[in-house]
Design a protein around this nucleic acid. Structure first.
Lengths: 124, 124
DNA sequence: GTATAAAATAAGAATAATTATCAATTTGAG
DNA sequence: CTCAAATTGATAATTATTCTTATTTTATAC
């Protein structure tokens, strides 16, 4: 991966926006300061950065993919009322990969857990 | 929900095709015997049946949603080589909802676990 | 520094999956 | 049987994302 100004902007924007943004969220945010970053470039870089392991793509939350600056293993919760995404620690499912591999005999290379419901604020 | 012939066809086809098909998979299958079921009707009925809890929609496996005739709680694995989807029992993550609710204080109404990797056949 | 090949870009077209529109048909309660 | 509500087929529209192409940047070799 060569250096590019646009990729740096994408990566930094994600690091500064810890809200698990979608590509469109990030595009709006980036547009304000860096209108020179096009949508195609944003999508391309998000893919590349995720493939390189520098960021993480989160599927299954809602109709679009969200992106996470935090590459350490953890899970996610999306509030069905306000749409906010929160982290859930791996404590909730210990040794889950080992257990699943033992049960199935498959080789597991990645996994994601998505919880849905109401966050603390929206519950009331 | 009123009765409709088309909805019956959709539900029965899913029950007979335990392969976790996508909407397009199911459309191809249904077309052969029941060309009178349109694509719009298929999508509409899959949504309605899922909302009514008679089937389950699985997100996060790949670019399209898959559907499951089995509404009992369980998790999923998709083989990144052959694309087949397999069930994973809830044993791999016991009390996960309770744990996540205790950790966060959120109200969790649903969750899904998606594993990716290589199935037994593709591993070799 | 200059040449140059590989990588990256912007702009917009294209695609894939899904949802919406709407007139016509079907269903079910009274 | 009647009529409103539900459902349908056909197709347009939408959403999210990827692809195309000509141009520009970057890294490297001289």
């Amino acid at each position: 991966m060569n250096y590019s100004k646009q990729r740096e902007v994408v990566l930094n924007s994600l690091k500064e926006n810890v809200i698990h943004p979608t590509a469109e969220n990030l595009y709006s945010i980036i547009q304000i300061e860096y209108p020179e970053v096009s949508k195609a470039t944003l999508y391309r870089n998000l893919s590349q950065l995720a493939k390189a392991g520098l960021i993480r793509k989160i599927d299954g939350l809602d109709s679009s993919a969200h992106f996470d600056h935090n590459t350490k293993l953890h899970y996610h919760f999306i509030c069905e009322k306000c749409g906010k995404v929160f982290d859930i620690s791996t404590d909730v499912a210990q040794n889950i990969v080992k257990k699943a591999e033992q049960e199935t005999g498959f080789k597991i290379t990645s996994h994601e857990i998505v919880f849905k419901g109401l966050c603390k604020d929206c519950k009331n």
